[in-house]
């Protein structure tokens, strides 16, 4: 499958701050590149030795432009969040597996809606997934959490596909649990901080709800060779380390060890 991912110099189409410390960057991907929801871009950050991975928040097939949301969390992400129109940056993409959209819509057939659960910029890959699932006319309820009111992003986009519950300062999983009392989801997709994912995993496990999570780990090469971004995942032999960059970043919520 050579040519799946490419290393290229990407033109930055735009960069704008969408919340304090969070920048949305739009980049041009090479012709023929067609990323899927859940996949990520591995972006070179100037003098920093390692690249930084960012989930794709949206992709426009007609222009070949992909969007990411960058939280300035240090040297590397700080440099990347400073990118603006006219800049260019080295990118390796698209990488990783993806939310299995066909499998997800098959599992939803004739059943309840899909719920999206996120914390902070974890909403990014879910925006891309919502767009693909929503286009197929499945109901989408979103539960998105942020640490304060200024940090809220993505609401408008998600409202196109269904109801959106925004949690500010509290636990987004609390909002999801109370809504489950009325009608539980057919499936959940999630991305966010580890404590949120752990809580959600327990909630889903208790109620027998299937789902997929996009997880994060300190990453090296991004293509699966260096084995740095390990994550324990249950399998037939008990559990084993999988590569977040290659086998993930999307894992079944019942299998991934959080």
């Amino acid at each position: 499958m050579r040519g799946r991912a490419k290393d290229f110099l990407a033109a930055v189409i735009s960069g704008r701050e969408i919340a304090p410390g969070v920048t949305e960057i739009e980049l041009e991907l090479p012709d023929g590149t067609k990323p899927c929801p859940g996949q990520f871009l591995h972006i070179s950050a100037g003098e920093a030795f390692l690249r930084r991975p960012f989930s794709i928040a949206g992709f426009d097939g007609s222009t070949g432009r992909a969007r990411i949301m960058v939280r300035d969390a240090g040297r590397g992400s700080g440099m990347i969040s400073g990118l603006r129109a006219g800049d260019s940056v080295r990118v390796l993409a698209p990488l990783g597996n993806s939310f299995p959209i066909d499998e997800i819509t098959r599992r939803l057939e004739g059943s309840a809606s899909v719920w999206l659960v996120s914390g902070g910029v974890g909403v990014a890959p879910l925006l891309f997934a919502a767009n693909e699932i929503g286009k197929k006319n499945f109901g989408i309820n979103s539960f998105i959490g942020f640490r304060d009111a200024q940090s809220v992003i993505g609401v408008g986009e998600l409202e196109e596909w269904g109801r959106v519950s925004v949690s500010v300062g509290g636990l987004v999983t609390d909002a999801a649990v109370s809504a489950m009392r009325e009608s539980p989801p057919g499936l959940v997709l999630a991305c966010g901080p580890a404590p949120m994912l752990r809580a959600l995993k327990e909630i889903c496990s208790d109620r027998g709800i299937p789902g997929y999570v996009s997880v994060e780990e300190r990453m090296g090469c991004g293509i699966g060779a260096c084995l740095a971004c390990a994550r324990g995942v249950r399998d037939a032999g008990g559990w084993s380390y999988k590569r977040v960059c290659r086998d993930g970043p999307v894992f079944e919520i019942s299998e991934v060890i959080l």
Partner: peptide, 23 residues
């Protein structure tokens, strides 16, 4: 060998630290 638990990599000035643990 399963290798070491994560985190297994850290960026440093002009380089990186790794502790994969021979997975």
């Amino acid at each position: 060998r399963a290798g070491n638990p994560p985190a297994r990599i850290a960026e440093t000035a002009s380089g990186m630290l790794n502790s994969i643990g021979l997975q």
